[in-house]
Design a protein around this nucleic acid. Structure first.
Lengths: 133, 133
DNA sequence: GCCGCCCTTTACGTTAACGTAAAGGTCAAT
DNA sequence: ATTGACCTTTACGTTAACGTAAAGGGCGGC
């Protein structure tokens, strides 16, 4: 039942190298338990790694990702911290929404181009047919 | 009426340095005209630069961006090229859609956390009031 | 006891995407 | 003609995010 993993397992699961995982630990983004010297990764560590990978897919730097992840486990005891927290999250969300718009724009253009190509293809096909008939 | 620009203007408009613009040219991503030695940027060049910046916001490497931009001005004369083209665009679109999902996931989580914080804040406020009454 | 496999730390190497500095050309204004 | 504001090329420097190699410990199997 104890859902723990070795570093090699985790690396395989995420398609990265052990070096990369240790590097993220160096950067303070992971804090696996230890069995002697060996690193032991809990489900919680896996979640963190998943968040890191998603951040990378979004084009964030490791530094930005670290900040974001830290957001997830701020202890919500101080009110001023909570306020700042909400503000930071708001900023981040605005950025993400802008990125979403960028993606939608790009997708729109690509669909347009794709259609143009398809139309051109159809034209050429009918021309071919015509030449045979 | 001739909508051309010097390198300095363009840099200011996009919030980047002239070095960066020349760097992109080195990489074959821009091909400004010349007046003697000076670079002259056409509206077309500006569009390209806009595409580059958007690609960067999406976390793409300059190499990926260059490929994508080249997609926009492939000459659609060969049918096999058109087919390949449509395929490549499809792959790119799939990737962008995945990235969109990542963003939506992240936004969802952040909204959840934001709400949690807001609720906590509200709780603390009412507690404060209660202690004063 | 030794082999092979996994793990560890330490440290130098590499690539992308520029930054920064050096050395110089051009042109308008003073 | 010299200053200042641009522009140019060339080239070395820098940072992030790892890769890669060296040197070694722990352990189950033969």
């Amino acid at each position: 039942m104890s859902e723990t993993h070795g570093i090699r397992e985790l690396a395989a699961e995420f398609g990265i190298t052990t070096r990369t995982i240790r590097f993220y630990e160096d950067k303070g983004m992971l804090r696996p338990a230890r069995d002697g010297q060996r690193r032991i990764y809990s489900p919680r560590d896996r979640v963190r790694l998943r968040l890191i990978m998603r951040g990378k897919r979004l084009g964030l730097s490791l530094e930005e990702i670290a900040e974001l992840i830290d957001l997830y486990d701020v202890d919500p005891s101080e009110v001023t911290q909570l306020r700042q927290f909400i503000e930071v999250i708001g900023i981040r969300m605005t950025a993400l929404e802008a990125q979403r718009r960028d993606i939608d724009d790009a997708l729109g253009e690509m669909r347009r181009i794709e259609k143009q190509c398809a139309d051109l293809l159809a034209q050429k096909q009918s021309q071919k047919k015509g030449s045979k008939a």
